[in-house]
Structure formats: structure tokens, C-alpha cells
């Protein structure tokens, strides 16, 4: 059978968004070469479809066969989609990949997405995202009161519980707003993508991460489109998705390291800070309370949370005596 199959992919980002845009290009390339040209994927970036957050609907409706996005963007439509990107104080990327591929992660994700005619697969990891760029230093919980911070979604809810004021600012107004201190802080991604936003030039404090320890992107696949592929091409597609996801994780690791080194060299005045213990404790408490509220309303949410918590307990014990102990033995 040498019939050529064409799939259309819509991604949430622009074609030239560093790292994220590369992942789909790699997917298309791998699918084509592994299938000897029988599986062709056309990529439409947000420049073309103009609907960055319409990816879920467009793949669901079959306007596109595949989407490249992030699960937590669909929280407003599908509350349980929240759990398949990253969670505050949750697993690190290696731990979370273990949960997805060898724990219950993938099957729970299927349970959430299948009713909508969709498959979801891991789509590449950004690693730990930074806590954000701050105009003022956070020394205690008192400094958080009334703090105007641009941070969307669940993490924003935690900030709000602490007394901060999450704000919505149009991306086009973000730079000017932070520069003129209309707002106090901006949460973005990490060195690899923050550098082109230029926040390091206008805000002195760069806080380390807590809320997105391992943001996993997502490949959404329309079930009907997937079923139309012959078995070997299905295998090629899923394999290629797994390879490019892993590759993005490594690529992000690399670019973050390189960009951070550049940023530090060019702007030695940037002060890297971590939130003080009382703030972290309050965030953890708020996180637990919010999760408990979700679990109470929805049995599936409860099961997912339980699966994540128990997997993380096991994985973390190992991370502690492996990676953490190793790093500790190196420092000092």
C-alpha cells in the first residue's frame, strides 16, 4: 500500500516561536521520512489559522486532524484537562514522564479526552518555568498583599488566595505596563523565551519557579482521523510524537541553559530570588485547598489527583536519594 495520507496540524504558537514551533516541524519531518513519504503532515501555525486557543475545537470538529497545544488551556471547557500539563508543587519532568508512559497518566488523559472524540499525547516539555519578573522584592507574605501580577489560570488562583491581585493584560500592553509599573510582576516562561520579551531590562528580580515544574505540551489527535490511518502509519505517528516530545524537553533544557548564561553575562544586575518560606508554605496550603475543592466536585478529578500524588510520592523518594543527593554532594 503506497497511498499517501495527508494530515493537517494546527498549533497554538506562531511558526517561528522558538522551540515550540520547532517541535511540529520535527514531527512532520519524522512522519514523512519514517513512512517513506506516505504520511504527510501540513502545519498551520497561529499566523495562519488566527485561533491559538481554538485548537481544541478545531481538532474536535475535524477541521484539523492534529493539534499542538497545552492541555491546561482547555480548563474552561474541560476542567480536568488542567492535570495534564503540570501542577504547582507537582512532579518534575522525568517524574511526570514516568507517570504518563509507565504510570496511569496516559490512560487517565484518555479518559478525559476520549468522550470528545480526541486522543491526547505528551507533546514536549519546557522543564521548570520561572516564577516571573518582579519590580519589587518579596520578603514575606506581607509583600504579596495587593501585588499586581499577570498570571493566568490555576496558579493565578493560588496567588489570589495569598492576597495578590492577578490581572489580565493584553500581551501588546504587557511590556509598557511592567515598565511603567502599572503592574508589579509578570509570569512568563523561562530564559529560553523570556529573553525576547525583554523583561530583564525593566524588572530587577527574577523569581524561581514553583507553579509549573514540568509543563508538558500536548498533541491532540482527532480519533476519526487517526482511525483512517493504516496500522503502520498509526504506529509511526505515535512513535514520532513520542520522539519529538522528548526531543523538545532536551532542546528546552539546552536553550534555557544557553540563554540564561547570555542573560547573566549581559545583565549581571538581574537578581535571581526564590520566594521566602512563608510564601511557599502559604502557596502550598492554597494549592491543597483548591485541589481538595476540585476533588470534592468531581470523582474523576479526585482519581487523577490521587494517581498523581501517589506516583509522585514514590518517584520523589527516588529522586531525592538519586538526583537530589547527587547534586547535594556536589555543592559544598
Amino acid at each position: 500500500d503506497d497511498k499517501v495520507y495527508h494530515l493537517k496540524l494546527a498549533e497554538t504558537w506562531g511558526a517561528n516561536t522558538p522551540l515550540l514551533g520547532d517541535t511540529t516541524k520535527r514531527l512532520a519531518y519524522l512522519a514523512k521520512t519514517l513512512s517513506n513519504g506516505r504520511l504527510q503532515i501540513r502545519i498551520d501555525s497561529s499566523n495562519k489559522h488566527k485561533a491559538p486557543f481554538g485548537v481544541f475545537d478545531m481538532v474536535r470538529a475535524g477541521q484539523y486532524d492534529i493539534g499542538h497545544s497545552a492541555s491546561y488551556y482547555w480548563k474552561g471547557k474541560l476542567p480536568n484537562s488542567l492535570y495534564f500539563t503540570t501542577m504547582p508543587f507537582g512532579m518534575t519532568a522525568p517524574e511526570q514522564y514516568g507517570w504518563f508512559y509507565y504510570g496511569d497518566g496516559q490512560s487517565l488523559m484518555n479518559e478525559v479526552y476520549e468522550p470528545f472524540g480526541l486522543y491526547s499525547f505528551p507533546g514536549g516539555n519546557t522543564g521548570v518555568q520561572m516564577g516571573g519578573w518582579f519590580q519589587k522584592e518579596i520578603n514575606s507574605l506581607a509583600d504579596v498583599q495587593g501585588l499586581k501580577i499577570r498570571i493566568p489560570g490555576f496558579a493565578g488562583e493560588i496567588w489570589a488566595k495569598l492576597g495578590a491581585k492577578p490581572v489580565n493584560i493584553a500581551p501588546g500592553d504587557l511590556y509598557t505596563s511592567l515598565e511603567r509599573r502599572t503592574i508589579d510582576a509578570v509570569e512568563w516562561i523561562g530564559p529560553s523565551l523570556d529573553i525576547q520579551m525583554g523583561f530583564h531590562k525593566i524588572a530587577p528580580f527574577y523569581y524561581t519557579g514553583w507553579h509549573e515544574p514540568a509543563s508538558e505540551l500536548q498533541f491532540l489527535v482527532n480519533k476519526k482521523a487517526f482511525a483512517r490511518l493504516p496500522a503502520d502509519l498509526q504506529q509511526i505517528l505515535t512513535t514520532a510524537m513520542r520522539v519529538v516530545a522528548y526531543d523538545m524537553y532536551i532542546h528546552f533544557q539546552h536553550e534555557s541553559a544557553v540563554n540564561w548564561a547570555n542573560m547573566k553575562r549581559e545583565y549581571p544586575a538581574i537578581q535571581v530570588k526564590s520566594f521566602p518560606k512563608d510564601v511557599i508554605n502559604a502557596m502550598q496550603a492554597a494549592n491543597s485547598a483548591l485541589l481538595a475543592a476540585h476533588a470534592e466536585k468531581d470523582p474523576l478529578a479526585k482519581r487523577i489527583q490521587h494517581s498523581q500524588a501517589s506516583y509522585m510520592a514514590k518517584a520523589r523518594a527516588w529522586t531525592e536519594i538519586a538526583d537530589q543527593a547527587y547534586l547535594n554532594s556536589m555543592s559544598e
Binding site: N16, G172, Y175, E179, Q196, M197
Partner: peptide, 22 residues
Amino acid sequence: IPPSIILIILGDVLGIPVGDLF
């Protein structure tokens, strides 16, 4: 003259900090 939509989009597309363009 900043602020400007064109400059914001170009900063995004070309990977240049918006502030530099402004």
C-alpha cells in the same frame, strides 16, 4: 511612535525585545 502594534508584532516575529524596538 511607540507604543505600536506593528513593533510589537515585529518584535515577536523577529525575536527582538519590544522595548528595544520602541
